[in-house]
Every structure is written in structure tokens, then in C-alpha cells.
Design a binder for these strands. Structure first.
Lengths: 357, 357
DNA sequence: CTGAAAGCGCTTACAG
DNA sequence: CTGAAAGCGCTTACAG
């Protein structure tokens, strides 16, 4: 009632109260405090109320980290990315993937930890994250992450990689997707085709690693073969996956021996390509055809609407998270799913212009 | 050399090795093991090498959670959202915000923990996250989160809320932004204006809380007053912030007493509105003007290009993370920043059609 | 119904 | 240069 000094002095950084403090205040053991929070049935109502009241008055809440250590569970899923967070979130593809992961997190009351590489290394980031398992994204080269995770015995699922046997993973049919767009363009009559691809890590080819990019390249080759062409007949540019890089690469491409069609391996790149072509005063698809990959929602808003390869990004995220949750629960399966792609023909591709020469 | 049984049996779920195991294997104390990893200078090169070799052969790595508990640091920033993760990531606004947060995380070698509400409560989510501090997003109603965080003594910064004195926070000039678009529309001659707003939590007005939405409403009122109008003269619809809800709301709006201009409080909503108007066969801006809010990159790709209110989303995320990092480092300031908005007039707004009546 | 004790795995003064 | 000990804050068998 009076303005006594019962409260803590404000402003002073008091140390956080612990179960010990509450136990003292409520005149019980620390075990009792723990029970009050975790297993109320084990103590009498009276004691519990007393403890809870004491806890409230001290602003006590169990320390999360201590609890994690004791329980051996963090209630968190790690999403391990191959690039800096700023770059990752820049790409709408990842947002959509995280919607899928988020659905599972929401359902299971889990949090999602976004884990960027440490000093450019996904490997180094692994030991610093307090998670129950990892979703490993876009492992374009296997730089030891798989072995590391396996040795540590921490559950994980591989997404968009070249999964070894016996490892949970989810992928899409990259080869077929790439095959279909290129076949589509060839059928339209294009022969001078450029590929705008993403950069893959070092030494991809030399180590016989076949990630998504390699599979897409195979799909392109397969389609080209149908027209008596090979990969040597197309220009291939590898750039970081940003709109701006797509823009620049397209300008580079157009400064040389102009292709009549640009096949990009990402809608984000295609958006940049469209911008560049617009700035160059080149009509799409009248003078140049452009195709994307992913089928982001955005691709349908573009003008011209983007012809692209749909992949079920959201489902991929959801599935990956589901697989990881199973693995964390100790279910000893190794599900391996390959999701389908589908060519979506819209407005950005058409017959090549009739040509002098 | 021989195929001895030196390795652990594969497949068998071995328990993770601890520092104790390494100490035993290397014939040193547990302290030495710890030093080998954390303070190599404190032990001799020989001992360190022996320890590291033993660690490697046992696949040992220090337990992150134990380390967190001991150090009292998690190296992780929590981003507390008012909605489910799936919904949050659905909105490009948040991706962009996270790019800003990500820049700081990358710089500081921090991870970002995405924290959705637990059982619809941001409050309940707080104690379950192992983070060094929170960025509290879009606290449209103060449901006790601030008090909770303050009592717990955990650093936090408020973004897009109604920040009390003495609390780090970053906001934008919502009122001015809303004022400007509406004034723009009024100047074009619009008098029948509809507002498409987001749902705010319960009892916003009743508690005298003035979050972003309330400020925007004030901006609208301010602009209307300049034309001798009041909020009662405009239709206001509050819907969840998704494209689909924007779509539906617009159809509802158009089924009634048709406005000549739709002011949305989010680009995402505006995209839905544009779609609906397109499906309704209504020309934008010929028959109906539409404006957005945020100025997402997407808004410039739309056709017609969207007139909208720019807000520096990325800078907001970066600043919030910067403020939080300072707070975590114990810097006892309470920075409070209000970022500017700017009206971006593009193609989706024009004079209202001449009218019968 | 309640408490004393051990333990989760680590780090860090403190002695030697 | 190295080790024994205490402690971070919690939970959970185990006794009573």
C-alpha cells in the first residue's frame, strides 16, 4: 500500500533471478520450483501457488539455455545457407522456401535459426548453432558438410544438392526442367541460345559432384542433342544470383554475338535480363526470348509475363522441415524425394526474328 | 592399416563425445581441452596438438549449448514476429527487413532466430528463445511484450510500434506517408476514396495505443481535412496483409458504392487490388486509382507501375539490428529513430473519370 | 507430497 | 605450463 521499497531499483541492472532465488522466497527446494513449472501435478496446489507467486514477484522465468542443455533439445531448426544472410534474403526464392519451413515450425512450435556461413564456410557455422538439426540448403559443392554433420551425429536433410545414399533429402527434377525450356526454345526455332547460370562453388566438375546446376546443364545438353547441337554451341555465363547480375550479364551477352534466346536458371536473373533488354531497346519476345526458372509469384506480374520453369518451392521447404522433424524424433528413415518441375509458357518466349544472314 | 575395429560402429547412434572423453584420450585435464579450443596460448604446442588430434579422432566439438550457458551469450539475435512464420515470410516486406538484419548479423557473425508467436502469443514465445536480445516487429498493440522484456532485463528494440520513452526503437514517419498519398489523390480530384488497411490486434483504439496503423489513419485524416472531409467520408476495410485478401477486399469494395481511388497500406494489398480490378475489367488508373505503401522492388515491375509510399525497409532492419547489438554490448543508450517516407508517383494513380452525377 | 544429490557439458579463476 | 574445483541454471531420478 505504501510507496515502500519493495520493488527493485529501476535502472540498476539486476542479475536475473534463478530457481534458487525463487526457492528461497517460497521456502521450498529448487526441485519444487522446477516442478511448479514443468510438472505441476507432482506438488500440492498450495505449494505450487506459493512458488508461482514468488516467481512472479521476482520476475523469474526458467533460463532457456540451461533448460536446453539439460533436456538436450533446443526446439529450433537450423537452416544452413551457402551465402550471407543479406544475400539470401534478397532472393524471393528463399522467402518462399522459408514459408514452407515456417509452416512446419508453426505446427510444431519450433523456431527457425538462419545460419549463414562463418568466414565463408558453412562447415564452420555448424558447431556454433544451437539447433536440433539442420536443413542444408543449396549445397552446390559438397565441401565436407555432410561428413561433418554425420560425424557429429546431428540430424540433417539436404536440399538441392547431390545427396549420397542413406541421407534424407529433397530435390527437384532439375534436368527435366532445364530440358523442357530449352526444348521449347529449340522448337520455336532458336539456335543461338545463351545460358545465364548461377555461380557454383569451386571445383564442382573436377570432383564429379552433380548438384542442381550440373543436372540443369545436363538437361540443356539433352535438349540440344535433339537439335544436333552441343553445349559448345551455346554461350554460358555464370553470375551471382541477383537481379543486378542478371542485368549486367545480359548487357555483356548482347554486346557480343547476340543470342536470340536467353535461358536463365533463376527468375531473379530473368528479371534483370528483362530490364537490360528493355534498356537496350530490344523487344521481348520479338527480338529476344527470355526464360526463367523457379516460377516465383513475381514472374506472372512482369511484362511480358515470364515463361519459366515452375518448381514447388514451398512444398520443398515444407518437406525438408518435415523430414528433419522426423529425423530429430529419431525416426530412422532416409526419405528422399524428387519434386517435379513444369514448364510454364507465358509471354516472354516466341519465335526468333527472321534474319538477315 | 588393417581393417581393425578402431572406428566406431557405423549406424549405431553413439553418444556425442565430451571434453572429458578427449581429456582421457589425450591424457590431460578437461581444462586443457577447453584451453586447446579457446585459449591455445595457455598450453604448450605439444599438448595442444595432442589434444586437437584426440579431438579430431573422436569427432569432438564443444557443445554449443553448454558453451552458451557458461558464457551467457548465444551469438544470436531473435526477431519476434506478430504472426506465424509462414505468413510472415509470405510478405516480401519482411524479407527485405531481414536483409537489413542479415547485414548486421553477417558483419557481427551472429545468427538470426525467427520467433513466431506461441499459441498466438508473442509474449509466450519470449521465454523459449535462446537469444541475446530481441527485435520486436510490428507490435501493433502492446500486449505486455515490452513490460515482459523489461522485467526480464533482456535487451530489445521495438520496430514499428508505439515506443515508450527510454526504449530503443525504430519507426518510419507513417503519418506523413499516409498524408502524402491521400493528399496526392485529393489533389487529383478524388473524393470517393477507400482505404485498405491491415488488421490490427484487438482493442487498439480502446487502449490509446498509437501504432503505425493509427498514425497512418491520422495522416489520412489530416489530408482529408484539407479537403473538408473526415474519416467518415471514406470507406475503411481492414484485412490480413496478403495479396489474396487485397484481391477479395477490392472486389467487395467494388460491389458497393464504388470508390474512384483505393489507398492501400501495403504494396502486397495493392497487388491484390490491381489483380481484382483487372479481373473486373476496370482500368487502372483510368477508372480507378490505386496506391500502395512500402515501395517493394516488385511495385516497379507491376503494370501499371504502382504509385506508392516508399519506406526504407532495409535501413530499418539494419538500424534495428545495430541498436540491438549496441544494447547487447551493454551500451546504455536508448536510440530512437524515425525514418522518412516518400511518395513515389508512378502510373497507377490519375484523375478520376469524369462522372455522370 | 517434498528435498538432497547428481548431472547436462562447458569455462575460468585459482593454485601449484 | 597444467590440473582440481567451482559454477553457469536447470531437470530428474532417487529417497524419504
Amino acid at each position: 500500500m505504501s510507496t515502500g521499497e519493495s520493488g527493485a531499483e529501476p535502472g540498476r541492472p539486476r542479475p536475473r533471478p534463478t530457481a534458487k532465488d525463487v526457492a528461497a522466497a517460497a521456502n521450498v527446494s529448487r526441485s519444487a520450483v522446477s516442478f511448479a513449472f514443468n510438472d505441476p501435478a507432482r506438488i500440492s496446489v498450495a505449494t505450487r501457488d506459493r512458488i508461482l507467486a514468488a516467481a512472479r514477484s521476482l520476475d523469474y522465468a526458467p533460463n532457456t539455455v540451461a533448460r536446453m542443455l539439460q533436456r538436450g533439445r533446443t526446439q529450433s531448426l537450423g537452416v544452413l545457407f551457402p551465402q550471407e544472410l543479406a544475400k539470401i534474403m534478397e532472393n524471393p526464392y528463399h522467402s518462399r522456401f522459408l514459408v514452407g519451413v515456417g509452416q512446419v515450425c508453426d505446427r510444431e512450435s519450433l523456431t527457425a535459426l538462419l545460419v549463414p556461413p562463418v568466414a565463408d564456410s558453412m562447415l564452420k557455422a555448424i558447431p556454433y548453432a544451437a539447433v536440433d538439426g539442420f536443413i542444408v540448403c543449396g549445397l552446390e559443392t559438397d565441401r565436407g558438410e555432410v561428413a561433418e554433420l554425420q560425424r557429429r551425429g546431428i540430424p540433417f536433410v539436404l536440399v538441392d544438392s547431390d545427396p549420397p545414399e542413406g541421407v534424407p533429402s529433397v530435390d527437384i527434377d532439375d534436368q527435366r526442367g532445364a530440358y523442357e525450356v530449352v526444348a521449347h526454345l529449340l522448337a520455336l526455332g532458336h539456335r543461338r541460345i545463351a545460358i545465364l547460370s548461377m555461380e557454383s562453388g569451386p571445383s564442382v566438375t573436377s570432383r564429379g559432384y552433380h548438384g542442381p546446376l550440373a543436372r540443369r546443364r545436363a538437361g540443356v545438353a539433352e535438349a540440344l542433342a535433339g537439335a544436333e547441337l552441343t553445349l559448345d554451341d551455346v554461350a554460358v555465363l555464370e553470375v551471382p544470383c541477383t537481379r543486378m547480375d542478371g542485368y549486367r550479364a545480359t548487357k555483356t551477352l548482347m554486346a557480343g554475338d547476340r543470342p536470340t534466346a536467353i535461358v536463365t536458371f533463376s527468375d531473379v536473373l530473368a528479371i534483370g535480363a528483362l530490364d537490360a533488354l528493355h534498356d537496350l531497346g530490344l523487344a521481348v519476345p520479338g527480338e529476344v526470348s527470355v526464360s526463367g526458372f523457379d516460377d516465383l509469384p513475381e514472374s506472372a506480374w512482369l511484362r511480358p509475363r515470364l515463361t519459366t520453369v515452375n518448381q514447388p518451392i514451398l512444398a520443398k521447404g515444407r518437406l525438408a522441415a518435415d523430414f528433419l522433424v522426423s529425423a530429430v524424433h529419431g525416426e530412422d528413415q532416409h526419405p528422399h524425394q524428387t519434386l517435379s518441375t513444369a514448364l510454364i509458357v507465358r509471354e516472354s518466349t516466341a519465335r526468333p526474328p527472321a534474319r538477315r544472314g
